[in-house]
Amino acid sequence: MRPLRFVALGDSLTEGVGDPVGERRRGWAALLADGLARSVDFTNLAVSGAQTRDVLERQTPVALALRPDVVSVVIGVNDTLRCTFDIHAVAARLDKVYAAFRGQDAVLLTACLPDPGAMLGLPGALARPLARRQRAVNTVVHALSERYGAVHLHAAEGAWLRDRAMWSADRLHPGERGHRQLALRFHAVLTREGVADGTAPGAELEFPPPTRSAGLWWLATAGTGWVARRCTDLLPQLLTLAAAEVRHRARGTSARLDLSASHAVASALAALSAAEQPDVA
């Protein structure tokens, strides 16, 4: 009997950033793989910085060729951090990716994620546009996960987000404890669905959590480069969005921004539904 094939797609979260083991990254997907079955063939295709376009065009073809039994697609945060963000494009790409794997009868794992502005502690006027974008992505992921019968994990809320011990020095990626919690929560859902029959990942840490000095070191080294890259791409647009937030807040019309975002999501999902309807002669 061949091993169960598990392929993970996504960005730095799935790649394992925040959970280093020696010179490599481990992460929640690798932790989960050990608990899926007695014998598992695990492949991690996730790449830091990946967006939905990368998952569709680069990772999905490779994963389909592996014909996985279980495939995880956890993506979307990096799309919200780009000036090119377009919820219609995000929805269309995810729809194609989900459909491709369900077409192979693979068990599809998805998750909604917290907004990066809140995790980074940005000021309200800067954080709210990012939160609105992440809510839009999460709404699309929820809707498409239901459409394709995915095993979905609600990871966008809960006490774990406010527990500093769950997060790495960069405050954007889970640390080892956070990755273990994600693996445990996925394992619990998969066990209920009858997909996982292996031992649940352990909750106890193998390595000490990052210290405050490690966080300061990250900001002084890698963090500076990370912020600079995001500023070059997103900051000019984000400042414009923040100015709009301030104007609407002063006028008491902030609800219009939320309503506009909701309409965009509804339009994106409606476009997918319309594309599925057969032409009537």
Results as ranks from 00 to 15, higher is better:
residue 4 L to P: 00
residue 13 L to E: 08
residue 18 G to K: 01
residue 20 P to T: 08
residue 22 G to D: 07
residue 28 W to N: 04
residue 30 A to T: 01
residue 30 A to P: 01
residue 33 A to G: 04
residue 34 D to N: 13
residue 36 L to W: 00
residue 37 A to G: 08
residue 40 V to T: 11
residue 42 F to C: 07
residue 42 F to E: 04
residue 50 A to V: 05
residue 59 Q to P: 03
residue 60 T to G: 06
residue 61 P to K: 14
residue 62 V to S: 10
residue 64 L to M: 07
residue 65 A to V: 06
residue 69 D to M: 01
residue 72 S to A: 14
residue 73 V to P: 00
residue 80 T to S: 12
residue 88 H to Q: 14
residue 89 A to I: 04
residue 91 A to Y: 00
residue 93 R to D: 06
residue 95 D to C: 06
residue 101 F to D: 00
residue 106 A to H: 01
residue 109 L to V: 10
residue 111 A to S: 13
residue 112 C to I: 14
residue 112 C to H: 03
residue 115 D to Q: 10
residue 118 A to C: 09
residue 119 M to L: 15
residue 121 G to Y: 07
residue 121 G to P: 05
residue 123 P to G: 10
residue 127 A to P: 05
residue 128 R to E: 15
residue 132 R to F: 05
residue 132 R to G: 10
residue 132 R to Q: 15
residue 133 R to I: 04
residue 135 R to Y: 06
residue 139 T to L: 12
residue 139 T to K: 12
residue 141 V to T: 15
residue 159 A to T: 08
residue 161 L to M: 09
residue 161 L to K: 02
residue 162 R to C: 07
residue 164 R to V: 13
residue 169 A to M: 11
residue 174 P to N: 11
residue 175 G to V: 00
residue 175 G to E: 02
residue 180 R to A: 03
residue 181 Q to N: 12
residue 186 F to I: 03
residue 192 R to W: 05
residue 196 A to F: 03
residue 197 D to L: 09
residue 199 T to N: 06
residue 200 A to E: 10
residue 202 G to T: 10
residue 202 G to V: 07
residue 207 F to C: 12
residue 208 P to K: 05
residue 211 T to Y: 04
residue 224 T to F: 08
residue 229 R to M: 08
residue 230 R to V: 07
residue 230 R to Q: 11
residue 235 L to Q: 02
residue 243 A to H: 14
residue 243 A to Y: 09
residue 247 R to W: 15
residue 248 H to P: 11
residue 252 G to K: 08
residue 253 T to C: 11
residue 258 D to Q: 14
residue 259 L to T: 14
residue 259 L to M: 11
residue 260 S to V: 12
residue 262 S to M: 07
residue 263 H to V: 14
residue 269 L to K: 06
residue 270 A to F: 05
residue 274 A to R: 12
residue 277 Q to P: 01
residue 277 Q to W: 09
residue 278 P to H: 05
residue 279 D to M: 03
